[in-house]
């Protein structure tokens, strides 16, 4: 695809020191542990398809006997009875996820490009701070963030969720590490041809790092797709899908089927995106290392 990905195309050779028995044992162990990982997810999906009488049987069954779409139907019925139409919650989350992810991709890539390919004073310091910031968990910054949001009057707006997500340190970090691998000669050639720095960035550098795009997109997507934003958003019509769905889950036993359906709706989207972009993500993560 590009000069960068060529680096990763390496042939796997048979390893002389690996016995067949070892390989078999390895696979066996993986399957057993994999079952532990997968069973709860399978159970979620199976539960979401179970009719009410199957959800409450003794002994409980892992797999559904007579699958039904009723639980999914229930979610929509339940939500259409709510004060704010269900489509609004979907719109909110989709809007937040799309703008946040796209903005993050552009802003973080621009900064990553300058940090990786420009020589200017202070760049090591800036990058050092951002690496440290990988450790700022949301809870540590939540309180001051709330105070800042209220000072600048962003409470109860989409921007309160979207804008901080634009500067997620993880995305910048991965993008910068990956961009280091773009050959300098490629950029020099463009500059000699008279391309402006902006042009070089969008037309030369960015197409080289498409797999890093996907990685940034999936991490940002995961965060925003699951963002409840309950700290900043009060108006019901601005609340997000995960928030609305957690309200269904709070319905307890009588909503068991609908809750299962909701869980599946929420988990299926990130998983599908991961499946589609897996090879690109792994390629990006190869350069994720922190060097001392």
């Amino acid at each position: 695809m590009s000069a960068v990905s060529a680096v990763f195309r390496k042939k796997k050779r048979a390893k002389p020191n690996h016995s067949a028995a070892g390989n078999f044992l390895n696979m066996l162990l993986l399957v057993v542990m994999g079952a532990f990982m997968v069973v709860p997810l399978v159970l979620s999906i199976s539960n979401s398809l179970k009719p009410l009488e199957e959800l409450f049987v003794f002994p409980p069954r892992l797999l559904v006997r007579n699958p039904t779409g009723k639980n999914y139907h229930d979610v929509f019925v339940l939500m259409s009875e709510s004060w704010v139409p269900f489509s609004r919650y979907i719109f909110n989350t989709v809007f937040i996820t799309l703008t946040g992810t796209l903005g993050h991709l552009i802003i973080a890539s621009m900064c990553a490009y300058a940090l990786a390919k420009h020589k200017f004073p202070g760049r090591n310091l800036i990058f050092g701070i951002i690496v440290t910031a990988l450790m700022f968990s949301g809870q540590v910054t939540a309180i001051p963030n709330y105070l800042i949001m209220s000072k600048i009057g962003w409470l109860d707006h989409y921007v309160a969720i979207v804008v901080p997500a634009l500067a997620k340190p993880l995305g910048l970090f991965l993008m910068k590490q990956f961009m280091e691998q773009i050959p300098d000669t490629l950029l020099e050639a463009a500059r000699i041809d008279g391309a402006s720095e902006v042009h070089t960035f969008f037309r030369i550098a960015m197409p080289q790092v498409k797999s890093a795009w996907l990685t940034l997109i999936i991490f940002s997507f995961q965060d925003l797709w699951n963002a409840q934003g309950a700290n900043y958003i009060y108006s019901e019509e601005l609340k997000t899908l995960p928030y609305a769905l957690s309200q269904i889950a709070a319905g307890g036993i009588s909503r068991a089927g609908a809750t299962a359906a909701v869980t599946v709706i929420m988990m299926i989207v990130p998983i599908v995106i991961f499946v589609v972009s897996q090879s690109n993500i792994i390629e990006t993560m190869a350069s994720s290392g922190i060097k001392e």
């Binding site: 802003i107 900064c111 910054t141 963030n145 901080p164």
Partner: peptide, 22 residues
């Protein structure tokens, strides 16, 4: 270079650095 890093660094400072210092 500073123009390239400005958007990120401003948001980063306001919503990540300032909160930790605060």
């Amino acid at each position: 270079s500073f123009l390239f890093i400005a958007p990120y660094c401003i948001i980063f400072t306001v919503f990540y650095l300032v909160p930790v210092v605060t």
